[in-house]
Design a protein around this nucleic acid. Structure first.
Lengths: 187, 187
DNA sequence: TGGAAACTAATTTTGTAAATTCAGTTTCCT
DNA sequence: AGGAAACTGAATTTACAAAATTAGTTTCCA
């Protein structure tokens, strides 16, 4: 069964959220109640697992994006709103803040991640630009700035202590952020 | 002349922006063309200099804030806009990103800084709340979220590479950010 | 009074050898 | 086929002493 491969990915994410990058393959094996031997039947190395975790996560986001892009009967604004929320929602499953640690030990994987992080914005930017042409969004609001603000706000939201201070739930915060930003560029 | 004391503060900031926290007192003395002896006539320790730098910067911000608060003939929205921009403008003089390094070596000073960073928001929040009562700003936009977004966006803007990517000048970015955020909570 | 330079005690950095941990493999067993 | 456990070489962490740096003081001199 090849779904064991997926189970390994999912469980590695689980352990990663607890122990961060310093998780060991023994940790993962123990968590799953299988032996390392089995893990190494499906993966050639620890690095390969992390590499595929990145794909696993971003493929999921991509799929969700396409779902939204193909959903019928949505106004541009509704579609943009959903698209903007889709991405951070996917990151509730993995400890986003800890992912930055990849930079030192696995620079290749980190680079892949930032690349996908970047390209993930393309459909949204496209939609925003379409919205501008149709007069929904202001022409004089810079979309790069918009992107910086969205990125920064979400990253801040992921920081351990930020959410605790607000007493608001994560998804609620997310909606507020998207609200403010979209209204902020509305014509 | 007591303005030598101020010159020492200003020049220490200059050296700090170049060399970061690892600046030496010899660096500062050399930069000013005076001897360490003179520096230690005005300050008891290096730590005391950093301590007073924090006060120096934040007193400046406070003064600018009061200026804006006492300025006549401004609408609430204009006043808020100016107030929101005042703070980050003051930080063009010092390398804000490097200030975080204080945390490890001078936790007391770092704490003072975060405290003043926090209390610096009070007049703005007050103004925003007044704006809500007068129906200028939406009641359903959470001001904590607003603050998180402003903080995060500015911090991101200070990051070394962010500005380079945009090709827009710092002050221009700042205005865009304030624009989007304020319009985003406008009723 | 204040600069230049030397001085000291404390701190920080550097080098490195020993100890530990861990990725990946192998053996043995069911 | 796959679990339990032992194994190995490489990498990482720890410990600590030697070396270098630097805060703050002192001396001498203009």
């Amino acid at each position: 069964m090849d779904d064991l491969k997926n189970r390994i990915l999912v469980n590695t994410i689980k352990v990663f959220n607890k122990k961060g990058l310093k998780l060991t393959m023994d940790d993962v094996a123990e968590q799953m109640g299988i032996s390392k031997k089995t893990i190494y039947k499906y993966f050639n190395s620890k690095e390969e697992i992390f590499d595929q975790i990145v794909d696993y996560i971003f493929d999921g986001i991509k799929a969700r994006e396409n779902e939204i892009l193909n959903e019928e009967g949505l106004s541009i604004d509704e579609r943009t709103r959903k698209l903007l929320a889709a991405f951070p929602e996917s990151f509730t499953a993995i400890d986003f803040a800890k992912l930055g640690d990849l930079k030192d030990k696995y620079p290749k994987i980190y680079k892949k991640m930032t690349r996908r992080l970047e390209s993930g914005w393309e459909p949204t930017i496209e939609l925003l630009e379409q919205g501008r042409k149709e007069g929904i969004y202001r022409e004089d609001a810079d979309l790069t700035i918009f992107k910086i603000m969205m990125d920064a706000s979400i990253a801040k939201l992921f920081e351990a202590d930020t959410l605790k201070k607000t007493k608001i739930k994560y998804v609620e915060c997310l909606n507020q952020i998207v609200d403010i930003l979209l209204l902020g560029i509305t014509a």
